[in-house]
Design a protein around this nucleic acid. Structure first.
Length: 508
DNA sequence: AATCCCGCAAATTGGTTGCT
DNA sequence: AGCAACCAATTTGCGGGATT
């Protein structure tokens, strides 16, 4: 109590309205909708009539089902339905500081009471769960009522049953005072609104790598000094300044749709050491006036790997790589697949090179897509180690896709050990799920086995069949038979399948 | 239970505009 | 010119779901 009344003088009057963006103006609603609220019907003062109407709305929503979004176009049927009233779009001449009294928000002469958010969400949830086919529920990403998006995008795999329909409002009107840490910390630090960016200058090594990858449309997206929130371990994201990204057209329409519908887009990234990995590009406040792009998953590991710190300057570049095989990404990549390159600038790069001098390449592992090589140990070298196909793959912008469960196994010793452990010998028939570059396949064939391989990634499928096209056994169609998976639309994951298969074996 | 990760929106700050 | 109110851009606190 009183928190609202103590609203800071400097704070914007709209600030409160935003936070209470959905409220119900009861009197208005009663008049508009002809509803008669039962007195004493519930503690919030909301009678069943309103909730019935809401249920009706839910019913209507359910009737508008589409695969990715349930959309209720404004003023289509319930033109007088103003139940979920966005107060942020309310009267702009509201100058009185809002106050809270007896559970009511007082704004000038107008009285509005709290929306029973939980009731609303519970009701919608219950209704939709009852009325909605399960299949459709699971694919539903958001619900829009009269332009108000009820988002559930944050739950990647959230089933509808445990999904809360966030109404984009604070459930609790009471606003906690935030600790003012920023002001003290950044005192005197100028917030840069003017984009006095230095001229674009992509380092030569990046240029040549991108050239090798046949990259086109190379452009600098972002030039940014890192802030605490960019590197804080609890935050794990890099916010891309809106000014620098809003005018650019680095995303194609289908990519924007992906972002809006699924909340993120996995983009191949060349990191400062020219290693290739993937990063998730996210979108905050989708479909709102202030959309922000952020780099999410794996940003944290980049921060720790390169020891990024406050005030380090980074640049994010984008480019596109045309794959010959346009089947990749469902044939959407007409303009080429989006790639990013992360470049350290100034002190950040100096610091990184200093670090490299002292720590050598101890963290280099023979893992996905890394161009590192292991030294020492006296292990015999094998031409397959750094994979004959790997440089070629990388140069074409192909590297392991976690979304497909891809991991390149580069250590031929392990492959041989695996083959030996499985006791694979002449004449054995081996089912290989996800041969990838065919490195294990090669060992298996050399051991005399007949290999039946299933590959989902059409690019890999082509590659592995080309690789073994020269082998005599392949020509005879006895050693390797490649099955191009038609499971593209399923949730097929080779390693998941394998682990489940092993698990079943164990329990049998 | 602890930690990680994500997304929203409050807080902060510099710029702009309008009035005196 | 000086001031206040408003606007816009950006950072980051924080809640809460997901994961370990």
């Amino acid at each position: 109590m009183g928190e609202i009344g103590r609203e800071k003088k400097s704070s914007h009057p709209h600030a409160l309205m935003k936070s209470t963006s959905i409220m119900i103006r009861e009197k208005e609603e009663e008049q508009k909708m002809g509803l008669r609220r039962k007195k004493d019907s519930d503690e919030h003062g909301y009678g069943s009539s309103s909730l019935d109407t809401l249920a009706e709305a839910a019913c209507f929503i359910a009737g508008q089902k589409t695969k990715d979004e349930i959309l209720v176009p404004p003023k289509k049927r319930f033109s007088n339905f103003n139940f979920l009233n966005d107060m942020s779009a309310g009267p702009s001449n509201m100058s009185t500081t809002p106050k809270e009294e007896n559970g009511l928000i007082i704004r000038g002469e107008e009285e509005v009471s709290h929306c029973p958010i939980e009731q609303v969400t519970n009701l919608l949830e219950e209704y939709l769960i009852q009325k909605y086919p399960k299949k459709l529920r699971s694919s539903c990403k958001s619900i829009t009522i009269f332009g108000q998006k009820l988002s559930c995008a944050k739950k990647k795999r959230g089933s509808f049953s445990n999904m809360l329909l966030g109404l984009n409002v604070k459930k609790d009107i009471k606003m906690k005072k935030r600790r003012v840490v920023v002001a003290a910390k950044n005192k005197g630090k100028k917030v840069k609104f003017d984009n006095d960016m230095p001229p674009s200058n992509l380092p030569e090594e990046f240029k040549s790598l991108i050239e090798n990858m046949n990259g086109t449309n190379v452009q600098r997206l972002v030039h940014k000094s890192l802030f605490e929130s960019d590197i804080k371990s609890q935050q794990c994201r890099l916010l891309l300044p809106r000014q620098q990204t809003k005018s650019t057209t680095f995303l194609e329409p289908h990519e924007k749709n992906m972002l809006r519908n699924y909340g993120f887009l996995t983009v191949p990234l060349i990191d400062p050491k020219l290693k290739q990995q993937e990063i998730n590009l996210g979108l905050w406040n989708p479909n709102k006036a202030k959309e922000f792009y952020v780099l999410k998953s794996h940003w944290k590991s980049i921060v720790s790997e390169y020891g990024l710190d406050i005030d380090d300057v980074v640049e994010l570049w984008s480019f596109r790589v045309n794959h010959n095989n346009n089947e990749i990404n469902g044939g959407y990549d007409n303009g080429g697949q989006l790639h990013f390159a992360l470049v350290l600038v100034g002190d950040a790069i100096k610091k990184e090179s200093d670090k490299e001098g002292t720590t050598s390449s101890a963290n280099d592992e023979a893992c996905a897509g890394k161009t590192s090589r292991r030294v020492g140990r006296g292990r015999r070298s094998n031409p397959d180690d750094s994979h004959a196909t790997l440089p070629a793959l990388n140069s074409k912008g192909r590297f392991p896709r976690k979304s497909l469960g891809q991991h390149y196994m580069l250590d031929s010793e392990i492959k041989e050990q695996l083959t030996a452990a499985a006791n694979v010998g002449e004449g054995d028939v081996v089912l290989e799920i996800g041969p990838g570059t065919g490195s294990l396949t090669n060992v298996l064939i050399n051991a005399g086995a007949f290999v039946l391989a299933i590959e989902k990634d059409p690019h890999m499928a082509t590659l592995v069949s080309e690789r073994f096209a020269e082998t005599e056994r392949f020509k005879e169609e006895t050693a390797l038979r490649l099955v191009e998976s038609s499971l593209r639309t399923s949730e097929y994951r080779p390693h998941q399948y394998l682990s489940q298969f092993l698990f079943r074996l164990l329990i049998i």
